[in-house]
Each structure stands twice: as structure tokens, then as C-alpha cells.
Amino acid sequence: MIDDLPDAAWDRELNDLFLRIGHRFGRADLRRRMRDYVRALLGPVGRKNGWQLAEYAGHHTPDGLQRLLNGATWDADNVRDDLQTYPRSASRPVSFRWWRGSMRVAWLSPR
């Protein structure tokens, strides 16, 4: 599972995912916000609300993350399609699971 990966390997795999989907976010500031948002969602944030996610990501307010979610132009279907091709090209076996409208990611340990 995710916890089985050393921090450096986890960070490398996550950066590979960001590179894979980054082109779907037209501007560099949107790509940075997307990266910050995903890292905050996966991080040890007690309550996943806008203020706490922004604080964890190092933002002064949640405005930038909220603009990413509510006003930025990006195609969620294309991002999903890019992510679905990732397990076939990943350096480790990966499993994506959809659960209640959100995606869960699990790196599977070889047996």
C-alpha cells in the first residue's frame, strides 16, 4: 500500500503523475495549485476543508485552490483518462479505485 513506499519513492511516483497530467492545466500557476491541492489531500491534514488544505500547502488563504476547483479551465475527463493509463506505464504496480466520487490510489507491493 502507499505506506509501504519510502518517502523518496512516493515523491518520485507522485511527481511522475503530476508531469503526466500537468499539460491539462494550461498555465504554470494552475499546475502548481493542482500539485499543492493533491499533496494537501494526501497529506496528514485533520479536516480536508479549504482553509486547512491551503494552510498545509503553504498558502495564506484558500482562494487559489478554490479558483482551481471552481473557475479554472481544465477537463476532468481528460485528467481521468491520463491517470487511467498510468498503471500500465508505472515503475511499480498501481491500482486506482473509485470510491464515492473520488479516486483512491494504491501502490501494490510485489509479493
Results as ranks from 00 to 15, higher is better:
46 G>T: 14
46 G>D: 15
46 G>N: 12
47 R>A: 13
47 R>K: 15
47 R>E: 15
47 R>H: 13
49 N>G: 14
50 G>E: 12
50 G>M: 15
51 W>C: 11
51 W>Q: 15
51 W>D: 12
54 A>Y: 13
54 A>D: 07
55 E>V: 14
55 E>H: 15
55 E>D: 15
56 Y>N: 10
57 A>E: 09
57 A>N: 10
58 G>D: 09
58 G>S: 07
59 H>D: 10
59 H>T: 09
60 H>P: 07
61 T>H: 13
61 T>Q: 11
61 T>N: 11
61 T>G: 12
62 P>W: 11
62 P>F: 11
62 P>A: 14
62 P>G: 12
62 P>R: 08
63 D>M: 02
63 D>H: 13
63 D>K: 14
63 D>W: 09
64 G>C: 02
66 Q>F: 13
66 Q>W: 08
67 R>I: 10
67 R>L: 07
67 R>D: 12
67 R>P: 01
68 L>W: 02
68 L>T: 10
68 L>D: 09
68 L>P: 11
69 L>V: 14
69 L>D: 10
70 N>V: 08
70 N>C: 08
71 G>L: 08
71 G>K: 09
71 G>M: 05
72 A>S: 14
72 A>D: 11
73 T>H: 15
74 W>K: 03
74 W>S: 10
74 W>P: 11
74 W>I: 04
75 D>C: 02
75 D>G: 02
75 D>K: 00
75 D>N: 15
76 A>S: 11
77 D>Y: 06
78 N>E: 13
78 N>W: 03
78 N>R: 13
78 N>Q: 12
78 N>M: 11
78 N>V: 05
79 V>W: 00
80 R>F: 00
80 R>K: 08
80 R>E: 01
81 D>E: 09
81 D>G: 00
81 D>L: 00
81 D>P: 00
81 D>R: 01
81 D>C: 00
82 D>Y: 02
83 L>P: 02
83 L>G: 01
85 T>P: 01
85 T>G: 06
86 Y>A: 07
87 P>M: 02
87 P>G: 05
87 P>N: 06
87 P>A: 01
88 R>G: 05
88 R>E: 12
88 R>P: 02
88 R>A: 13
89 S>M: 01
89 S>L: 03
89 S>H: 06
90 A>F: 06
90 A>V: 02
90 A>I: 04
90 A>W: 07
91 S>V: 08
91 S>E: 06
92 R>G: 01
93 P>C: 04
94 V>R: 01
94 V>K: 00
95 S>K: 09
96 F>Q: 00
98 W>G: 03
100 R>S: 07
100 R>Y: 04
100 R>V: 07
100 R>I: 03
101 G>A: 04
102 S>L: 05
102 S>E: 06
102 S>W: 05
102 S>C: 04
103 M>V: 14
103 M>A: 06
104 R>S: 04
104 R>H: 10
104 R>I: 05
104 R>G: 04
104 R>F: 05
105 V>K: 02
105 V>P: 01
105 V>E: 01
106 A>H: 07
107 W>T: 05
107 W>D: 01
107 W>C: 04
108 L>R: 05
108 L>M: 06
108 L>T: 08
109 S>C: 04
109 S>E: 04
109 S>P: 02
109 S>T: 11
109 S>V: 10
109 S>Y: 03
110 P>G: 07
110 P>T: 05
110 P>R: 05
110 P>F: 03
